[in-house]
């Protein structure tokens, strides 16, 4: 185990951050290549679809040709990719074929809405799963433990659209407590966030339970108990912090999934976030939006992954950074 003074630790941390950040660059370029290449390989001509959507009628060959020329769709792949990547690093993801609006601005205007349901769902999930996970670990094998495990298994198996309909039925149709769908107020946020939170929270509570059970039989917990520390304090002060390392990784990834993949929930609840925007873009072969979305969410994933890595050293005091940076050793 290696120890450093404060300045040395800061330098090591900076080196680690830089190295970690540098390692994301090739991954990011790979994401950009996939984003651009895959959308270009999909069948279907965006010019045809744009015109079809506008008029409701199949377009003429001439109209398709003009739109293809305007959109420079006939240029070779490397030229189009190079042009796009160069603009992307400057913060320009191009313009939507359908709307003519800048892609980054469109994503930025919708992203806060998706972030709102994802963050609310994550907060709801953690608020419920933490006490449930702790309680079921403390009272393992009890009726509560079995009941919660069965309940979490059940709700984790429910498809989100089904759950969404049931929640609408209960809270909007029967109780008239919340709006069916739409956006604009905090009340509109509750049902879509809850729909997402149920599945995430169920998974978290099982994860916390399992991680805590593992920690409960470690040497340091036995020592704490031998010193007369109460069981609840052993769990909350000692076990939970160690157990939260795994949870951090999973939570970061789940949060990334919520940001990128709340498509069905956004559709059911008419929530105008980036998920539904992406689906429309796929249907309409709106390449700039598809490419921009994949790059945007890929970047968010990379950032979350980086943050999760950094959170380890804060959560676990045993983790120290090596002089060379990049690796963490205990």
């Amino acid at each position: 185990m290696e120890r450093r003074d404060g300045g040395g630790h800061r330098r090591a941390l900076t080196r680690y951050l830089l190295a970690r950040f540098a390692s994301t660059v090739p991954v990011w370029v790979g994401i950009s290549l996939l984003a651009f290449g895959l959308s270009a390989l999909t069948p279907g001509d965006p010019a045809t679809i744009i015109l079809l959507r506008q008029t409701g009628e199949p377009p003429s060959v001439e109209a398709v040709r003009i739109v293809r020329r305007q959109l420079r769709l006939d240029d070779p792949f490397p030229a189009r990719y190079g042009r796009w990547l160069l603009r992307a690093v400057q913060g320009d993801l191009g313009q939507s074929y359908r709307t003519g609006e800048p892609v980054l601005a469109s994503l930025a205007s919708r992203f806060p809405r998706t972030l709102a349901i994802a963050a609310t769902a994550m907060a709801m999930a953690l608020a419920v799963s933490l006490p449930l996970g702790v309680a079921t670990a403390m009272f393992r094998g009890s009726g509560l433990d079995h009941g919660v495990r069965i309940a979490t298994l059940l709700v984790a198996s429910l498809p989100s659209f089904w759950l969404g309909y049931l929640l609408i039925l209960l809270f909007a149709v029967w109780l008239h407590a919340l709006p069916v769908a739409g956006s604009g107020t905090a009340r509109h946020l509750v049902l879509p966030a809850l729909t997402l939170a149920v599945g995430v929270g169920a998974g978290f509570s099982r994860l916390i339970r399992a991680a805590l059970l593992e920690e409960l039989w470690q040497g340091y917990t036995r020592t704490a108990r031998a010193r007369g520390v109460r069981e609840i304090l052993v769990i909350l002060r000692h076990c939970l912090r160690n157990a939260s390392i795994g949870l951090t990784t999973v939570a970061a990834l789940r949060f990334g999934h919520l940001l990128a993949g709340a498509v069905i929930v956004e559709t059911v609840f008419a929530w105008p976030g980036i998920g539904s925007f992406m689906v429309d873009a796929i249907y309409d072969r709106d390449y700039p939006v598809i490419q921009g979305f994949v790059l945007f969410t890929g970047t968010v994933f990379l950032a979350l992954s980086l943050l999760a890595d950094l959170a380890y050293s804060w959560l676990d005091p045993r983790i120290r950074l090596t002089r060379g940076g990049g690796d963490a050793v205990a």
């Binding site: 309909y165 609408i168 039925l169 149709v173 069916v180 609840f269 539904s276």
Partner: peptide, 13 residues
């Protein structure tokens, strides 16, 4: 309301 079921539920609510 992109989803037809939600549309019907909005009417019934």
């Amino acid at each position: 309301f992109p989803d037809a079921t939600t549309r019907v539920l909005a009417l019934t609510a």
